[in-house]
Design a protein around this nucleic acid. Sequence first.
DNA 1: GTCTATAAGCTGATAGAC
DNA 2: GTCTATCAGCTTATAGAC
Lengths: 212, 212
Amino acid sequence: MSKRQANREEVFSRILEAAEIEFGLKGFGGASLQHIAERAGLPKPNIVYYFHSKANLYKQVLNNIADGWNDLFDKATAMDDPAIVLDRFIRIKLRQSFENGRSSRIFAQEVIQGAHYIGDYLKEDLRPWLRSRVGVIEQWIETGKMRKVDPVALIFMIWSTTQHYADFEAQILALTGKEQLDEADLVRVGDTLSEIILRGCGLTPPVSNHPL
Amino acid sequence: MSKRQANREEVFSRILEAAEIEFGLKGFGGASLQHIAERAGLPKPNIVYYFHSKANLYKQVLNNIADGWNDLFDKATAMDDPAIVLDRFIRIKLRQSFENGRSSRIFAQEVIQGAHYIGDYLKEDLRPWLRSRVGVIEQWIETGKMRKVDPVALIFMIWSTTQHYADFEAQILALTGKEQLDEADLVRVGDTLSEIILRGCGLTPPVSNHPL
DNA sequence: GTCTATAAGCTGATAGAC
DNA sequence: GTCTATCAGCTTATAGAC
């Protein structure tokens, strides 16, 4: 790779990171190329030169986020133990919320505002993923491995409870008086969520509650 | 009340409703007084005349939303049956999400963007409310009425799972292929959430599962 | 390829006529 | 009290120098 290409990629990722921060703080409409450029340490027109338009830069940011979301739950089959799979799924999702809240907040704002830029991803990628995971849960129920619950509502439940700690971080900090959430919070919340949801599904939580 | 005052109040509420819609769709930064004025059927300067500034109009909208959030859980005491109280709390919250999602989405965007305009409400109103509800749950646990769980994490769990159906409505519709959520969905999701959370707390869900 | 300069339009807010 | 006309500043995006 030439020096020029290396520099080009470095500029690309610097802009993307600056854009991620600004879009996360103010949403698509509230963010401006001006502030993104300042944060990236570049003249404003360079942003447009590299990404053609604000909307396109936003799409790139959204794509980057969606790419990083491959969960362990992906590979689970009807053969696996639902208690272990769901416990891990909850704790991994929760850790992602604690450690990379910005991505979750950008995605949340995009969905709240109607999912106009990400609608295709939801219908073409996430929807098949959901259907296949619902199939696994239905098999767990049919084979008596867990209590009969609505699989879609269960998955939405795990998503919402874990993402809450990223999306509503400001509210949680204001309510608890903390300056930031720490590893102890992660373990405590993970234990609570895992125990309630697993017991609610008629499962026994795994003995070793590693926070992962 | 004079005719003039009546008209004044009607204009006030018309602007507030238009603002609620625009802020809900695009967030504070993305919404413009121009579009709010057009939606309200008024010239743009009238918005500023009535509400002094965009930020103030936004605060008024936020205040209106917070005022409407007094739950039945407010009046619960350690004497009450946690199964009945929590079941009702979940179903009322869920119905609010189904029927008035716009309010939830405005509030969610405000919190995601840092809760700068609503920070005082969180610290001065919602925080004491949370502390008092945590106290009730702790007494339920101490008197053996329910299993020991982290009370704060439990309340966040109920908030997040119910608000999810308002805030992430676009995602849910895209994933399920529905055009809108209906009464049957409300009952089905309410049953699932109530059963999982109550069983997870060592409680037996109430026999009659009214959606309220 | 990367920058400066600038265009064309929209922003929140105001001044002043009626 | 309500409107028209307008302000200065910021928005995205482009044209053209280097």
